[in-house]
Amino acid sequence: MDVSKAVDQRISTRAFLPDALPESEIRDWLEQARRAPSGGNTQPWRTIIVSGAAKDAVIGMAAPVLAANPKGQPTDRPIYPKDLWEPHESRRRKVGEMMYEALGIPREDRAARVGWFANNFRFFGAPVAAFIIIDERMGHGQWGHTGMYLQTLALLAEERGWGTCMQECWGMLRPALKEHFKLSDTEMVWCAMAVGKPDKEHPVNTLRAERAPLDEIAELHGF
Score class of each variant (00 low, 15 high):
G222N: 11
G104P: 08
I49L: 15
I133R: 11
G161T: 02
M193I: 07
T206L: 07
R35S: 14
T186P: 02
T47K: 05
F123E: 10
F223P: 15
D109M: 07
T164V: 14
P81G: 09
M61H: 01
H180A: 11
G115A: 04
A218I: 05
D185A: 15
T42V: 14
L66R: 00
M1F: 08
A57D: 12
L84G: 10
P74G: 00
W45L: 01
P78H: 05
A68L: 08
M193S: 01
K182D: 14
E136G: 15
V95R: 12
I49A: 15
V50T: 12
T47A: 13
E219C: 11
M188F: 02
P213G: 02
Q73I: 00
W143I: 14
L220Y: 14
F123W: 15
G196A: 02
T164Y: 07
L21F: 01
T152V: 03
N205Q: 06
R27K: 15
P87L: 11
T164C: 09
G125F: 01
I105E: 07
R77F: 13
V204G: 03
V189G: 07
P203K: 10
I133E: 07
L21P: 11
E216P: 03
E136P: 13
A33Q: 05
A36Q: 12
S24F: 10
N41S: 09
V7C: 12
L84P: 06
A15Q: 10
A53Q: 12
P70I: 00
P87A: 12
K182P: 04
S38M: 05
S12R: 06
L66F: 01
W170E: 01
P198S: 09
A63G: 06
A33P: 09
K182A: 14
I48Y: 01
G222D: 10
A15Y: 05
A157E: 09
R174L: 03
P18N: 08
N120R: 03
H180W: 05
W85V: 14
D56Y: 00
H140V: 13
M99V: 11
A194P: 10
K178P: 03
F223R: 14
N41T: 01
G171R: 06
P175K: 00
T164L: 06
Q73K: 01
C169L: 12
F181G: 09
A111C: 06
A112R: 13
I132V: 13
H145W: 05
A57R: 05
M166C: 11
A111V: 08
M98D: 15
E136H: 13
K55L: 09
T146E: 04
A176G: 07
H140W: 08
E89W: 10
A218F: 12
P74K: 01
G96S: 12
D109C: 03
L30H: 11
R208M: 13
N41Y: 03
E158D: 07
S90M: 06
E31D: 15
